[in-house]
């Protein structure tokens, strides 16, 4: 499959559904209860209550500095909340839980190695890496012909695509994507959205941060809207984009909300 023939029929998981592996507890719903994050006395995330269910693709929106990236970090266990708690199907965050999540960071950090080696690294951490699997992932994000190049020499958009391939290599049950298409061209955006929708259809819980309203419309089943570290609304996508419940959501969609 090439970049020009989108990922519609591709199977993203490789080993998950083998019959003899015992069913792991689902990590869903993800529940946040009164989650607060304070750094140096600043309340950056303020008393967030939230429930994210398995079946919906969640899009996280809000102006710059609203706390979207921090909320992802909290849910991915990279920072611990100052108060409150986050559970995954009742389980507290642990290495075990985090291992079944993956994240594409707003600014991806790639290893100082080849494109292929970056994917191999993630594959090897989970299980045996095979070149075929790696090539499949690189093909998926349209980077197969760049496999031998140094990852750090890729363009910004290519780096984001590689970061997505690396995240998918871990076959996550929960996938956090922090503005993964922020510096992509329209064709690559289309490609990434296809991959994300495919992952969603195959049962991966996707939490997607974007500023792009059109993208939100295309992807979201529900929108979680943040402002000033607070959860302002959590609304089904159809409703959010036509008639948001909050004043802030309305102002944001009209391009009038700033932090």
């Amino acid at each position: 499959m090439s970049m020009h023939e989108p990922a519609r029929q591709m199977n993203l998981s490789h080993s998950r559904e083998s019959a003899d592996t015992p069913r792991l507890p689902s990590l869903l719903p993800i529940r946040a209860n009164g989650v607060v994050l304070e750094i140096d006395g600043n309340r950056l995330v303020d008393a967030i209550d939230l429930e994210l269910s398995a079946d919906k693709l969640t899009v996280l929106m809000g102006p710059n500095g609203a706390g979207k990236s921090l909320l992802l970090r909290l849910m991915h266990g990279l920072v611990a909340p100052s108060a409150g708690k986050i559970t995954f199907d009742g389980l507290a965050m642990s290495d075990e839980v985090r291992r079944r999540q993956a994240m594409v960071f707003q600014r991806p950090v790639l290893l100082r190695r080849s494109v292929a080696a970056n994917v191999d690294f993630a594959l090897k951490i989970r299980r045996h890496a095979s070149p075929a699997e790696r090539d499949k992932l690189l093909d998926l994000v349209g980077l197969l012909d760049r496999a031998k190049q140094p990852a750090r020499a890729l363009s910004g958009g290519e780096q984001q695509r590689l970061a997505l391939a690396r995240a998918l290599a871990t076959e996550p049950d929960v996938l956090f994507l922090d503005e993964p298409t922020a510096s992509l061209d329209p064709h690559s955006i289309e490609l990434i959205e296809q991959i994300v929708l495919l992952a969603h259809r195959q049962g991966t819980k996707v939490i997607f941060v974007t500023h792009d309203v059109g993208q939100g419309r295309r992807l979201a089943d529900e929108v979680v809207f943040l402002h000033l570290g607070r959860l302002v609304e959590q609304t089904p996508a159809k409703r959010f984009f036509s008639d948001p419940a909050s004043r802030e959501g309305k102002a944001y969609l009209e391009g009038k909300l700033v932090l």
Partner: peptide
């Protein structure tokens, strides 16, 4: 942070 995310 990337390593933690991957549980390396």
């Amino acid at each position: 942070e990337q390593f933690r995310s991957l549980s390396v």
